[in-house]
Each structure stands twice: as C-alpha cells, then as structure tokens.
Design a protein around this nucleic acid. Structure first.
Lengths: 343, 343
DNA sequence: CTGAAAGCGCTTACAG
DNA sequence: CTGAAAGCGCTTACAG
C-alpha cells in the first residue's frame, strides 16, 4: 500500500460569532446587533466588532440567522418553465441582471426556481414554508394562479409583466400599451396606409397590451385594425404570421411586430416574397434586442429596459419587506422608439 | 378612528417535524430518517410518515436542516458579471435550464451569485462559509483565480467552459476544438481557397480553442492560417472584424466566425460590401442560436448544446457531493455541424 | 448601551 | 429498527 488512506475530511469549523465576540471583547448580543445594523451600540463597540470581523474574515452562518430570526434573508425568483422558452432568453437574463444589481450590497440571497408543469404544489409548499421572505415571479402564462396563491398565503410577491390571473398582486411591467401605440402612430406618420400587426400569444398580457396599443394608435388615425396575425415569440411563428398577413392583404405596406425575435422571421418572409424593407413594407419591432441592430435591414423597434424591470421588481419587493407603506400597486416603465432602417 | 390597528402579523407557525411525528405515531428521529431516505426504517413506519407528511403538507425547514446537519442542501451558480455580458444571454439561460433540469426532484436549491469586480473576497467568504455544498462557475475571464481558490478551500467546484487559470479544477466544456476543426474542413471541402476566421477574445478558452481548431483544420489541408481577426462576441465586433479581414484579403472566399452573434455582424458587413453569401463568401458560425436560422441567409453553424452543458456540470458536481470516486477531471460535449444556406 | 439565557427546527451519535 | 437528548450558530426578549 503506497497510498495513504484519505483522512476523514476535517471540515474546519468556520469562524463563529462567538469568536468575533471574544476578539472584540464584547458579548455575542453586541456582535449580533452590529451585524444587523441596530442603533443602540456604542461607536467604540461597533468599531471593535467591525475590526474583528474583517480580521477573522467572518461570514455569518445564514442558516442559523434564518432559524433564529424570523426572516430567511433570501428571496426567490420563480420562472415558469413554459414561459421561459417563450419569453426567450434575453428577457430572462436581463431581468436577472437587474435583480442582482438591486440586491448588491444587501445581505439577501437569490434562489432560482423554475416551476414545472405538475409540481406547483411542491413549489407553493416550499415558498410558503418560510424559506424565503418574498418572491419575484416572471414569465407567467395565461391565468396562472401562482401569484394569487402566494399573496394569499401572506408571502410578499411581485410579478414581472402584468399577470392576467392575479388581480391585486403588485406588478411591474414595461408600458407595452403606449410603446405599441407610439409604434403605430409612427407608421401612420410615415404615410403608410395599410398597417398590420403580428401579435404575441393571446394568453399573455404582454401580447394583448401591445395589440391594444397598436389598435388604439390606428383607430385614432381612423384606420382599419383588421390585419392581425398571431405568433408565439419565435422567429418561425413570425415568418408564418407574416406570410398569412401578406396573403390576406397584398397591399400591406407596414407591419408592427410585437417582438424583435418574431420580426426577424417576418423580415425573412418579406425577403422571400420580394418585398423591399422599408420601401414596400415598413417594419417596426418591440424589445430592442442586441440583434435588432444587425438585422437586414437594421430594425426600427420599441425599446424596453428589461434590466430596469428586474431592478424595479426587486426594489418594490424589498421596500415591502422593509415595511414601507403606501407602495404603488403596480409600476409601468417607459419605452422608447429606436429608429433604424426598417421603418 | 375607522381603521382598526393592523394586528401584529401572527406568523402562523408552519407544520414542524414534531407534528408529523405525532401524527404518524413515531419519534422525530424516525421522521428525519424517512425524510432523508435512510435505510433502517420499517416499511410500516415509513408509510405512516409519508402519509402524515402529505396530509399536513409538511415542508422541512431548510435552515434547520442546514444548521443541524453538515450540508446546506444548496449549490451556487456563480456568473462573472463581466463574462455574462460577453458570453451573452442565450448561453446563460441555456445553462440555467440545464442546471434546473438536472436538479429537478433533488431537494437541492440553486442560489445565483454574480461576481462583480471588487467583491471577490466577499464572494469567497460567503461560498466558503458553509452556505453551499458546491459551486458551479461559468463565464470566466482570463486567469480568474476564483475556481482555484474555491477548490483549494475544499469546496467542490465545477467550471463551465475550460478555465484558463485553474488547472486541476474539474470542468465541462463543448468540444470547441473539434467543432471548429470540422467547420474549417467543411469550408475546405466546399473548395474554398482563402479562408479567414473571426475569433473570440484572446483571454477566453472558448475563443482560443475555436481558433486552434480552425487552424488545425486548415493546416491539415496545407492552407494558410494567417487570416485571423478578433472580436468580443458582439455583433458590432463581428462587423468590424469582417471589414478588417476584407481589407487584408480582398480574395477571401470563406470565413469561420467563432460565434453566431458575431456572424450576424459579419453578414451585415459582407452585405454592405456587395459580397454575396455564400456565392462570394461562405460563412460558418458557432453555437446555433435560435436566430441563426433566420439570419439572411440562414446561417450554417456548429451547434453546441448549452442546456446539456448545464446538466452535465450539475451531474458532475452532484456526483462528487454524493462521494462518487474516480470521476472524470473534465468532460467534453460533442458539437454538430448544422448546414443551412450560408455555406 | 450591554450581557446571560432561551429557543429557532432540525440531525446525529448513542443507547437500546 | 427506534427513541431521548445534545447541539448546530445565530437572534431576541428580558433584565440591568
């Protein structure tokens, strides 16, 4: 035997609060108070504790804090798996960046959970089990009762994107209605006469709100709002919807596509049909994804700031956890037209 | 005063293990054993406990489990913020889906942490503080010492994408070298004579490995490997690199672009220069993003399965946590050419 | 402003 | 196969 037997990994115990207390010459209570930023601590004691913490590289045991205290110091971001494929990756990643940015410096962890078809009960049990202080929910579909369930259980909850089936639960959303209306007005201002739209899925508010905005924009100009085709936020569905629209209205000269990712498919169809963009058909998208600027031609679109969405959701949730009152029931973030070559 | 004073939120205590024990007519120890799937429990007791758990909707308090036991039942996914912008969103979202898929059914939570410039020490303190059982690290840049630091601290760590500065730390990666070599060979087989490449950043293994693969593919055909331009995984950098290449070699008739997102920019430049794709210049990308198929023309590319990457990383980490031995030090996932119109 | 003590809800030897 | 008891590392009244 040349190999020594692996010694039983002596899991070196971490620095504990007690050691910090000893090093600082105070009691555990005082250290705890300093860590939690409580007011009644002498600056001398506070100073000593801070130094000891730094010197020892102390990091409080979260499990113990959670168990002893009443909060988990942890919030959950719940993503519906179904929705995550549809709403697509840039949305998800952007929101996440925003959430993290807002959480920076706060001692709050983010746990990520994907809700899968069929395990809703497990999810609700877990979330309501005191493991998290609050929940952020995104990419909801249809009348998903999840936010209502969580809110009813007394768990602070904020939804990203207006929830269709959860009246009363606070949410943050881009101002999809006005963004789409502005896009429609822009196309009208360009002198376009036959304007269609490729809308998002009927069971998501983001789809319906953008459709409503487009309708309003056209109605105000006394134009027809009959040219509607639906897609599901994939390039392929955008291509198919565009073909549908072209078949129904050969004289179509503009289209508002409710998502850049579908607009890419629409551009492909227009190209295949020999339609020049924007000469024959003007195209406006929505989202302003990174790839919008490299579409052929570069896509005119309505920008929404998804990172800001994540930040705002988190801010709203943390404010509620902090006990602030009279918080707004919902928040709408502004959108902005970005004019490029396609319209 | 018409409003009643808000009653102090009577935080309804959750079902506890003790109540389950009482309902099942056994001791707390036995309930704990059942929950943790330990072997020495009579099937009768096991059955009673399971029923009680279901009936009471019991969800164990993770904080208590963590504190009492030695594991956190939690792993971290660490994303370098800098890297996350570069590697782009689809990568991140795909990996995350894979991680979640692999974690499904296991009672292990995923906490997400973004490492920001300057807070590395906090991050290391936290991770090594016993709050997580293991760490998944992605989108590393340069010689980032993080994985080495974590591994040295005895924390099981798996890196996604070959780490440049962490020899010895287990990693999972797409087989970038062979994928790129295959792309180069494919262009050669098409009869192309002057083949360039737009490579990724020099400080990321993914950039270097794809570049090496391309070089090898051309060398084997005794072709020049001088036409290299560098980008940073943005469409804009791809556009600029393409212009550079065209300036250096007007006779260029093919280009391997190390990422689809850069290929979009390259296509735009080629278009602007009046080059027809693939007639004048054949283009092959890498990744097979959703948008590759709606590029104009649809992009021939090398597919990597990022979701599989996430699953494999997680599997590798969980296997180590389970105490399995003789695990592979690294794992390379196969790539596959996807032929479309651009080459 | 400070400290001693109880308790959060589990897991884990230990004894049987 | 099972149970009584100690202990994980904090926070929080309570008393001073």
């Amino acid at each position: 035997m040349t190999d020594a037997v692996e010694p039983p990994k002596a899991r070196r115990p971490n620095t504990r609060l007690e050691e910090v207390a000893r090093a600082a010459g105070v009691s555990k209570s005082t250290v705890s108070r300093v860590i939690n930023g409580e007011p009644y601590v002498s600056s001398k004691a506070r100073e000593a504790v801070h130094q000891a913490i730094t010197r020892l590289g102390y990091s409080p045991n979260q499990a113990a804090r959670t168990l002893a205290g009443s909060r988990a110091n942890c919030i959950a971001l719940v993503v519906s798996e179904q929705g995550s494929r549809v709403l697509a990756d840039p949305f998800f990643a952007g929101v996440l960046r925003g959430v993290n940015a807002e959480l920076a410096g706060k001692r709050v962890q983010l746990v990520l959970m994907m809700s899968k078809e069929g395990d809703e009960q497990d999810l609700v049990n877990y979330l309501c089990g005191g493991h998290v202080d609050g929940v952020l929910v995104i990419s909801l579909h249809g009348q998903d009762p999840l936010p209502r369930t969580l809110a009813d259980a007394g768990l602070p909850t904020v939804v990203g994107g207006r929830p269709l089936g959860a009246g009363g639960v606070p949410y943050v959303d881009a101002d999809n209605f006005n963004g789409a209306m502005e896009a429609a007005r822009y196309l009208v201002s360009l002198g376009r006469k036959r304007i269609g739209t490729i809308a998002g899925p009927r069971d998501m508010a983001v789809g319906m709100d953008r459709l409503s905005g487009w309708k309003r924009g056209l109605s105000q100009a006394r134009m027809e709002t009959d040219l509607v085709a639906y897609g599901d936020f994939t390039p392929e569905s955008g291509a198919a919807a565009m073909a549908d629209l072209l078949g129904r209205a050969p004289d179509l000269d503009a289209v508002f596509v409710a998502a850049d990712i579908m607009a890419l498919g629409a551009l492909q169809t227009l190209h295949a049909h020999g339609k020049r963009v924007p000469h024959d058909v003007a195209v406006v998208g929505f989202d302003d994804l990174m790839i919008a600027s490299t579409a052929v031609p570069p896509l005119t679109t309505v920008r929404q700031d998804v990172e800001q969405l994540g930040r705002t959701m988190t801010w709203r949730l943390m404010a509620e956890l902090a006990g602030e009152e009279n918080l707004p029931p919902f928040l709408l973030l502004p959108t902005a037209m970005v004019t490029r070559a396609s319209a």
